[in-house]
Design a binder for these strands. Structure first.
Length: 337
DNA sequence: TCAAATGATTCCGC
DNA sequence: GCGGAATCATTTGA
């Protein structure tokens, strides 16, 4: 205890132990002149030293007496201050953590996907974007959209309920630890700052658990999105009209079945599909036609006739427009179809 | 249920 | 970046 006494600076001229007076030479001098407080400190230290040699009952009684001693708050205050300056200052350096970039990324993603933050907006926007990327027709897109939203809402609900649980547990645990430390602060020097630090440590621990929750939520959203976006899983055959339009173009340009960008856009608009779907279709068609010309010959003939008829139809309509005296010529052309 | 058809993706060469 | 070729995954029809 002598070492401790020296370390704590209690040996000489401590005087009144209030923090305000520490380091105040005038105050110390005044107290020393009085003589009494120094003697009190000596008594207290003697009593503390003697506690371990006493029986349990005696020690309890002594502790109680010390607890009620008028110098106790001042002594605690000094001990707290010294503890603050020595032990805790070492840890203090690493306490002001910058925001974790990983948590920030996860938060941003969860916000963008509409899992965290306001309920409306992000989620449906993401679903709409996903639906557009999937390239599905507008009709089935809405079905997929609602399906996606329902699943996203499910993830959101689980995320929030888990988050609530963690927050509640964190709050309960923090309260418990704070009460415990306050209780202990009656028998050992624990400053409010130290309690704050402990609370911060608990929060850091719980935030790492929260990060795991956020990570797994992000994974769930990614899986949902990839399933939703994986067009191969929900391939739909183009409707008959679209296939007809594409085939007409293909067989009428059989010598050079490579539509320009403008032609692709035009075809995409006509068929209600995307330009890349048109490109895919032509890619597949060229290769499959080339591989088995015989098989496609019948189809080629069919569309050749159809094209010829349509051309004749157009020219007939044109001549009808030029000679209003023959009003029935258009019907003949229709009859050929 | 299964083979064929079909739309999408991936890899590679130009 | 585009197109050919191979392949995958799903739909369709017998």
């Amino acid at each position: 205890m002598d070492d401790q006494t020296r370390m704590l600076g209690l040996g000489g001229g401590l005087g009144a132990l209030s923090q305000a007076d520490v380091g105040d030479p005038d105050s110390a001098r005044k107290q020393q002149a009085l003589g009494q407080p120094q003697q009190d400190i000596g008594d207290i230290l003697q009593q503390i030293m003697a506690i371990t040699d006493e029986s349990l009952d005696e020690a309890q009684a002594r502790k109680h007496a010390l607890n009620c001693h008028r110098m106790k708050p001042a002594l605690f205050s000094v001990l707290c201050e010294i503890k603050e300056k020595t032990v805790l200052s070492i840890r203090g350096v690493q306490e002001e953590d910058p925001p974790d970039p990983q948590i920030m990324r996860l938060d941003n993603m969860l916000l963008a996907e509409g899992v965290s933050g306001p309920e409306k907006g992000g989620g449906s926007a993401a679903a709409a974007a996903a639906a557009a990327a999937a390239g599905g027709s507008p009709n089935d897109g809405s079905i997929e959209h609602s399906d996606y939203r329902a699943k996203l809402a499910q993830i959101r609900q689980i995320y929030h309920s888990e988050l609530e649980k963690y927050e509640q547990a964190c709050s309960e645990f923090t309260t418990h630890v704070m009460n415990l430390l306050r209780e202990q602060s009656r028998t050992r020097p624990i400053s409010p700052k130290e309690i704050e630090r402990m609370v911060a440590i608990i929060h850091r621990k719980f935030s790492s658990i929260q990060m795991q929750l956020k990570q797994s939520t992000c994974e769930a959203v990614m899986i949902l999105r990839s399933r939703f976006l994986d067009a191969r899983r929900k391939r739909r055959n183009f409707n008959k009209q679209a296939t007809e339009v594409l085939n007409e173009y293909f067989y009428s340009h059989l010598s050079n079945p490579y539509p320009s960008e403008e032609a692709k856009e035009e075809l995409a608009k006509k068929c209600g599909i995307t330009v890349s779907q048109v490109s895919n279709w032509f890619g597949n068609k060229r290769i499959r036609y080339k591989k088995n010309i015989g098989k496609f010959q019948e189809e080629a003939n069919l569309y050749a006739v159809k094209t010829a008829v349509d051309a004749a139809n157009v020219s007939a309509q044109a001549s009808q427009a030029n000679s209003p005296a023959t009003p029935n010529s258009g019907n003949e052309a229709d009859g050929k179809r």
